[in-house]
Amino acid sequence: MTLAPNSYTEIPYEEKKRLFDEMRADPRYQDHLYGCYECGICVAACPSARFYDFSPRKIAQALARQDVELIYEQLNDDIWNCSQCFSCTRCPRGNNPGGLITVMREVAVNNGLGSARDALEGYGRVVYKIMGTGTQVSPDMLQPNAFPDWGPHVKEISDHLDVWRRALPPETLHTTTTAWQVDDRTITELYFIWHATGVMEMIEEVDEGLYEILNDVMEDVLEDAGFDDL
């Protein structure tokens, strides 16, 4: 039963229930949710709540009520507004709304929900960089046009990136296409981890194009290392 007005009526109840059961089956779930008496401390502490129509209290409350319809609505409309800072863990009942949202996001991603695709769309380049190189922000991302808020000296620096980088004492930082030098063995292990832990399947659910590109990048490396049956 739900106390929410009908939303997402095109999705059958059984499908919404299946997603909720998937959340509840997560081993973290029981530790993240006790009961909620709506004191609002999580909302008071929540930076996202100040800028978006978002309430960690409502997330905890809907889950505690086991309100399948409302939870599905939140899965689509609310969970991506959380910044995952976990300020909400100051809950006096010991709830962890941010942790519940982590679980919900994983369910959304693993099931290729539209909201997950939309939310992650802008992060394709970051995901590619992390998964392909093991590092996130690389010096060559420092383009004069990309980040105007970084100031006028960015152009000057970006003109001679390799020189600036060589001025840094650790040799591992003498790179421009990755944040630091990543050795081949690390990359191989990293690619293996992405495959073995289901991250590649997760990416395939939300961004097939990105999945193809990453697969191409990883294929040869893994084959050379003897992981050719992945």
Binding site: Y34, G35, A64
Partner: peptide, 26 residues
């Protein structure tokens, strides 16, 4: 308001919510 002062909080209110899934709607 739920008014279960003192030990009634953990003897009645919390178990109702946490063990028996009683839904408290304000």
């Amino acid at each position: 308001d739920m008014r279960m002062y003192g030990y009634w909080e953990n003897q009645i209110y919390w178990p109702a919510q946490e063990e028996y899934n009683v839904n408290y709607i304000r």
